[in-house]
Amino acid sequence: MSGAPAPHTAPAGPVGPVAWPSALQPKVAEALSHYPNRRSAVLPLLWIAQREWGWLPPEVLRLVARTVELPDAEVFGVATFYTMFNLKPVGKYHLQVCMTLSCSLMGADRLFQHLSGRLGIGHGETTPDGRFTLRRVECLAACGGGPCLQVNEEKFHENLDEAAVDRLLERLP
């Protein structure tokens, strides 16, 4: 199992027009270069933005729209279609517990309730200290290792039980 996941940068929530930080510009250019039209880069750019800002506030969505030369509304429609784009701020560690059948058969519901109790938050909520967001998600493609959990974008943690998940939380910086 991989080590401590890399944290998101703290949710900043820029207001007013934003621009790509210069450090990201090569990444943006690279993403655009992969496709014959700009529009195709919309998901990669949303990812780059989300990794930078932790979530996708309206101004950031506008930035992406400008970059790919699409109407703002269209990018909004795309961003909200997919469940992994955060249109609200999330905690430093985004705990995503798979709840679909295979994991559920192996105890995902218990695991989720354990986490919920321990952190004092429910589905989609963030701890007051901004450290954890808890979310139920659908099948992660780790069914043979259920119950499982993904923290941020890192590799899945599999075969979890209450004790294992406690150890995992304690290891997080």
């Binding site: 992969h34 998901l43 949303l46 790919v68 997919y82 992994m84 784009f85």
Partner: peptide, 21 residues
């Protein structure tokens, strides 16, 4: 190309829509 959380994008034409942005 990385999707962003949508089972339907496994269906080939939805996948292409997603790939096209």
């Amino acid at each position: 190309h990385l999707g962003a959380g949508a089972y339907i994008c496994g269906e080939e034409t939805a996948l292409l829509s997603s790939l096209e942005g």
